[in-house]
């Protein structure tokens, strides 16, 4: 078990390095660099920019050095815990992110929680009470959720949220709480603002999990071991929750890593549409301006989250399925 964990962490570190290189390369790939982007922005604002000024910027940030040298110096400082200095915000990257990362995490994991807390029980219920009203409704709403793009869903929910529930559109705090100390009222206000982004991010995933859970459950419910469990005197409900559910959870758990990926990659768009002060808008900006330290750090954080998600999924699978446990153990 510990050995398995160790192996997994080992390979995660290797992939993390490879990934950092690809990230760095990709951000550099478009023609020009931050200095050009800066000059273009100034020129667009009507300022006059001399080539000397541009060259100055380029030297200050070390953008004139060869690609590999830049990469090594960046990754070297990342390893020492220094994420670098954001050109765009004129602040250390860690400052920019520390204001925004918690919100991103709250929204992503909130969405993930909704996906499983709603998806799994609804899937079980839909399978056991097949062709019931709940089953049909779940299917119907699920298809809508799957088919609607997130940004559109965000706009729709903002509209109805405000119309029906008076939820304010965008942001994470109502104006009156801005700059106030954290009181219960402020926390409640904060949480109600999270409802829409979490729903937007979680709907597609929930729909997918309901489908998966329902279909594997339907397969498992007809297996002889369910009848044979009932023959020992287990009531229907307990027999279903104890035996087939555990088997049906296996494909769900196996894909937690992917689900986290899709939630995280969906998050920036939702953040932008809802103008949330999370990492989404910053991420977009940093890519547009080729603000390498910031863009690279954000991508690395996203990747780290995916690695953690995959690890969690592996550990859960381990606990759930003895066959996997055994194959891992025999592989030692």
């Amino acid at each position: 078990m510990l050995f398995f964990l160790y192996k997994r962490l080992q390979s995660a570190v290797v992939v993390l390095f490879a990934f950092s290189f690809v990230v760095f390369y990709l951000v550099q790939l478009p023609p020009g660099d931050y200095a050009d982007a800066w000059a273009a922005a100034r020129a667009a604002a009507g300022d006059r920019v001399t080539p000397d000024e541009v060259e100055n910027i380029r030297q200050t940030y070390g953008l004139d050095r060869p690609f590999l040298v830049q990469y090594v110096s960046w990754i070297g400082s990342v390893l020492t815990g220094d994420l670098g200095y954001s050109f765009e915000f004129q602040k250390p990257v860690s400052h920019v992110l520390s204001e925004r990362l918690p919100l991103t995490l709250a929204i992503s994991f909130g969405a993930l929680f909704v996906v499983y807390a709603v998806g799994i029980p609804l899937g079980i219920y839909s399978a056991v009470r097949r062709q019931s009203v709940v089953d049909y409704s779940a299917t119907f709403i699920g298809y809508i959720g799957l088919a609607t793009p997130n940004f559109l869903l965000a706009l729709i929910l903002v509209y109805f949220g405000q119309r029906w529930f008076g939820l304010s559109a965008g942001g994470v705090l109502s104006p009156e709480f801005l700059g106030e100390p954290w009181t219960t009222a402020k926390v409640v206000d904060f949480l109600t603002h999270l409802i829409i982004p979490v729903l937007v991010l979680g709907t597609a995933g929930t729909a997918a999990q309901v489908r998966t859970m329902r279909s594997t459950m339907l397969d498992e419910l007809n297996r002889p071991y369910v009848t044979s469990a009932r023959a020992t005197g287990l009531p229907m409900r307990r027999a279903v929750l104890k035996y087939p559910t555990r088997v049906a959870l296996i494909p769900i758990v196996a894909t937690i890593g992917w689900e986290l990926t899709s939630v995280i990659s969906g998050a920036p768009i939702v953040g932008i549409v809802l103008s949330l002060p999370d990492m989404g808008p910053v991420f977009l900006q940093s890519l547009v301006n080729q603000d390498m330290p910031l863009a690279g750090s954000i991508l690395l954080i996203y990747y780290l989250l995916v690695v953690i998600g995959t690890l969690i999924s592996d550990l859960l699978l381990f606990a759930l399925d003895p066959r996997i446990r055994q194959s891992v153990e025999s592989a030692r």
């Binding site: 002889p224 071991y225 009848t227 023959a231 005197g233 088997v247 759930l320």
Partner: peptide, 26 residues
Amino acid sequence: RRMNKLRGRELGMVFQEPMSAFSMVH
């Protein structure tokens, strides 16, 4: 409810295919 009290206690059942009549993960 009462049937659940009989099954497994007073009525014992042996099924056809032992490989599929047991849950593989318990």
